[in-house]
Amino acid sequence: MTQKKTKLLVIGGPTGSGKSELALRLAEEVGAEIVNADSMQIYRGLDIGTAKPAPEEMARVPHHLIDIVAPDQDFTASDFRREASAAIEDIDRRGKKAIVVGGTGLYLRALLEGLLDSPTGDPELRRQFDDVSGEELLRRLAEVDPETAARLHPNDRVRLVRALEVYTQTGRPISAFRAAHGFSGDHYRALKLAITVERTELYRRIDARVERMLEKGLVEEVRELLAQGYSRELKSMRSIGYKEMTSYLADEMTLDEAVTLIKRDSRRYAKRQMTWFGRENDIYWLEYPAAFASILGHVIEFFG
């Protein structure tokens, strides 16, 4: 007997596009709970710089996987998959619907498709490819893993280097690990949505959001984290917004310079997110808030 798959609404897209607001509105309309898939909102104390939902928003709809680890704790995509799966199972058992929302594409992929049982990254080995052109990387990959090479573009350095790294470490092409990977699609039936925003408007929203973070007390938040003993070298403290503010507080740059860098790096991150989600399969790009009524209709039909 085939096990019934749990239905999930998954909302992705670039930072500043309105994912959290959309998820909140949809959750209230269909009686759902929200599972966070933002790799920075998992950290306690990193509130303003991560645009974490406000307490009153979390009071309106139950949220999961927010504030679950300290800033100095490691939390991987594998950890996310485990914790998110447990939260979704709990939500489903109570007869509620689950909405997974966040811009960390790797988290969403880990949840929906699982993780390849391939070796962990080797920074030293990866550095050997730093000065190799994308065309040459693709040529080398085609010699040892033509299946993977056929799917990649010379500009996709991250995946090219990862594929060559795996082959160098194991003597096996990453396509072989992928072929042996049988998780995909086993547990969930997902409706994947992403918010599309015209680039100029998205960048305007990002700049405005950074200004709001400053008004809400981002400088004071970072100062307090440092006072609690959290090193500026932690992964959490190296994230956008925090690394620039620690540099400002160390008198390495002015506040204006720090803010300019936060805006710039946020825009670059949004661009990378759009590229990531643009490569995902079966994802529907919709405008928000303009198309909210249409989005709601799709969601009601999906869960119905």
Rank of each mutant, 00 (worst) to 15 (best):
F80N: 01
F80L: 00
F80D: 00
F80H: 03
R81C: 02
R81W: 01
R81Q: 08
E83Y: 12
E83Q: 15
A84S: 08
S85F: 07
S85Q: 13
A87E: 04
A87V: 03
A87F: 02
A87C: 06
I88T: 08
I88S: 07
E89P: 00
D90F: 09
D90S: 15
I91F: 05
D92K: 15
D92M: 12
R93V: 07
R93T: 13
R93K: 13
R93H: 10
G95D: 12
G95R: 12
K96G: 10
K97T: 13
K97Q: 14
A98M: 07
A98K: 06
I99H: 00
I99N: 03
V100K: 05
V100H: 03
V100Y: 02
V100P: 07
V100L: 07
V101L: 03
V101A: 04
G102R: 01
G102I: 00
G103F: 04
G103K: 05
G103E: 04
T104S: 03
T104G: 02
T104A: 04
T104H: 01
G105C: 04
G105D: 02
G105V: 03
L106C: 08
Y107T: 00
Y107G: 02
L108N: 05
L108K: 00
R109E: 06
R109L: 04
A110W: 00
A110G: 01
L111A: 00
L111S: 01
L111M: 00
L112Y: 01
E113M: 12
G114W: 03
L115C: 15
L115H: 07
L115M: 14
L116G: 06
L116Y: 02
L116K: 05
D117M: 14
D117W: 11
S118V: 13
S118L: 13
P119N: 10
P119W: 06
T120E: 15
T120S: 15
T120F: 15
G121I: 09
D122L: 09
D122I: 11
E124P: 10
L125P: 07
L125H: 10
R126S: 08
R126L: 08
R126K: 11
R126P: 01
Q128V: 14
F129H: 06
F129M: 07
F129D: 03
F129W: 02
F129C: 06
D130H: 11
D131C: 12
D131A: 15
D131W: 09
D131Y: 09
D131G: 14
V132E: 04
V132F: 04
V132C: 08
V132W: 06
S133A: 05
S133N: 09
S133L: 08
G134W: 04
G134T: 12
G134H: 11
G134K: 10
E135A: 15
E135P: 09
E135T: 15
E136A: 12
E136F: 00
E136H: 09
E136M: 09
L137Y: 00
L137I: 05
L137P: 02
L137D: 05
L138R: 07
L138Y: 01
L138D: 06
R139Q: 14
R139E: 14
R139G: 14
R140P: 06
L141S: 11
L141H: 08
L141K: 09
L141D: 10
A142S: 12
A142P: 07
A142T: 08
E143D: 14
V144P: 02
V144R: 07
V144H: 04
V144M: 05
D145P: 03
D145A: 07
D145H: 00
D145C: 05
P146D: 03
P146M: 08
P146S: 11
P146L: 10
E147P: 10
T148C: 11
T148P: 10
